[in-house]
Design a protein around this nucleic acid. Structure first.
Lengths: 350, 350
DNA sequence: GCCTTGCATGTAATCGATTACATAGATAAT
DNA sequence: ATTATCTATGTAATCGATTACATGCAAGGC
């Protein structure tokens, strides 16, 4: 099998020589074909084909002062919920001609710093941040370096910071979940929250409280259980619930993973869902439809989230911060997916 | 709040001026500090701090002819199994000073082409490929451009192609699964495979057949059911099994997702696991421990897979293809995780 | 005292593409 | 016929860091 030398490096000059034109014309044929006459264009294209020329990205980036890449900062890549959004971000950026760098803010010692570094180094042109837990220090750094219009948030966001963001209607989702349980006749409804300080935790908790008040439901402090979106925390919240003197008849969980962990724990204690307790999740991960029982949940439109976030950033990168005054916040609608994990409450006193 | 102009671009020249040295010395202070005298080094570092200098990656890449980035080609980013490996790859590369680009081969029209493009463009220095379904055409392109020692495979691999690869001991895992079922007394054991043409499908199927022969188990063609690693295919395989005249008493599934889909389907038909049928999965995804019943499965050490694959590529990139003669294939050991989805067979004739 | 060796630093070429500016030729306008 | 206008292309500077080579200076060997 024939094999070309590894680092032959065909340059724009080589192509120019081959085609009998100047390097500038070659460059123009690639970047702005419309200003080149048709015949020279053909000549150049033929020479490119013949020499196997490829543009050197580093040289182009140096000259153009842009990298054609974006960074996606994910909190915990291992979480399937995020990876599906990543898939959709990747698709949109790919179509827009950008490559996608990833970084796991779990792994990075100082994720905010890395974002600043990558932007200032010119490694990436923009950032999609799925992590709403950046510090004030990070924000100040963004601001000091004029990076505001290179960052958009998706799923999570920062309260009180003027960044564009794309998010689900978390509050409404929570309300729908509680109302759904209410319609089944539940009045004693517990909630397993996300981690402290998280914006999603706050939004979903608020929605739940709102619905409770509106429906005039009884409220006990112990019915609000701190979780962290993980299966493990779902299992642990089951421990708490089993220990309660006044047990709720239904639980709204801040994520599907939590719901599945809770259901597993209840089963281990001999309680089954939905007979002994109804459960609603949040997210609609793929497995929600296949768990036992299949999980009633609030679906987040992950592909819309990714697509819109990527679109938003692309738009900002095009008109380099010109139109950036408007800090758009897009809210994506959520849907209640009714499955088998809810039913009417039984009169099970403890 | 004070705010620096967006594109002030402090260069190595500016720092040099500030420190009263030449640009070369500044560059040396950054790249090879040991050749610079201690006092000038301090001088330069102070000037760097003072000016807020940041090295321009594009310029460095152009000169050094490397990008400091790698590409990870993932088949289906949405799959939690892959995203966890991605997390571990990301961590290792990050420590090694490389940034990580991702690409979803589901989304890309021609993933192999993209790999070649990115490497030749100089966008990335190397590639970790989690997708074993590249075409011969792609391989030829790699070879023609001398890219062999810039690619390593992880999880999946290419039969008959001399690329280094890191993989689980799939065959052994399959054998362990069948033996485990055998020990419970199962003789009629079915298998849901992965997709046609996939190397994992082949390795696991082969292991299963081997164990069957060794244990002298009965073999019926219909007990080998084609799947594709997805939950949906697990559900469908359940349809097939329910229709069989001679029903197996246990099923070994090529992935946990398949196992969960199958269990859901059986439940929908009023059969429960493990009472009416035993099920073993493969992967040990996080939810395997929390499903109902909790899933007996073959654990793949995902963090080892990611770490070793990244390490392998890093090593190759260091000594630029010198030591590349050896095409190392690392096999990572798997473990049987025994949970509640297996028990002794019942005499349920159809 | 002279020459060698080595260390620290400076000079300038280089990586490869892009693009502002200049120029030549063709066409249109008067 | 002369000038203005436009189009296609070439010339050369530029992006910013790196590094081969050159230089100067100090220490050590005879």
């Amino acid at each position: 099998m024939p094999r070309r030398e590894p680092e032959k490096s065909v340059t724009v000059q080589d192509v120019a020589r081959q085609a009998g034109v100047s390097a500038a014309t070659v460059s123009r044929t690639i970047s702005t074909p419309e200003v080149v006459s048709e015949q020279t264009r053909d000549l150049v294209l033929e020479a490119i084909r013949h020499t196997g020329y490829r543009v050197n990205q580093a040289a182009r980036n140096l000259r153009r002062k842009r990298s054609g890449a974006v960074l996606v900062l994910v909190p915990n890549l291992g979480n399937p919920f995020f990876s599906q959004i990543l898939a959709s971000l990747n698709a949109t950026f790919s179509n827009g001609g950008y490559s996608v760098l990833i970084s796991d803010s779990n792994v990075q010692e100082a994720p905010g710093r890395q974002v600043v570094d990558y932007l200032l180094d010119g490694r990436v042109d923009g950032v999609v941040c799925l992590d709403g837990s950046l510090t004030n220090d990070d924000l100040e750094q963004f601001h000091l370096n004029g990076l505001e219009n290179r960052i958009v948030f998706a799923c999570e966001w920062l309260e009180d910071a003027p960044y564009p963001s794309v998010r689900s209607n978390n509050r409404k989702g929570a309300i729908m979940a509680v109302e759904h349980l209410y319609e089944f006749g539940h009045r004693k409804i517990a909630h397993v929250t996300g981690p402290r300080g998280n914006v999603l935790t706050a939004a979903r908790r608020e929605g739940m409280l709102h619905a409770r008040r509106k429906l005039d439901l009884p409220l006990r402090d112990e019915w609000i259980i701190r979780g962290d979106f993980s299966v493990q925390s779902g299992w642990k919240s089951g421990d708490d619930i089993l220990r309660m003197k006044e047990r709720p008849t239904a639980v709204f969980c801040a994520s599907d993973m939590v719901a599945l962990g809770l259901i597993a724990r209840l089963n281990a204690a001999g309680l089954s869902v939905p007979q002994d307790m109804s459960v609603v999740g949040f997210d609609d991960i793929e497995l929600a439809a296949f768990s036992l029982p299949s999980l009633t949940t609030i679906r987040q439109d992950r592909s819309a989230l990714g697509e819109q976030a990527a679109g938003q950033l692309l738009k900002r990168l095009e008109n380099d911060g010109e139109l950036s005054a408007a800090c758009e916040i897009k809210t994506i609608d959520v849907t209640l997916i009714s499955r088998d994990s809810c039913s009417t409450p039984v009169a099970n006193s403890t």
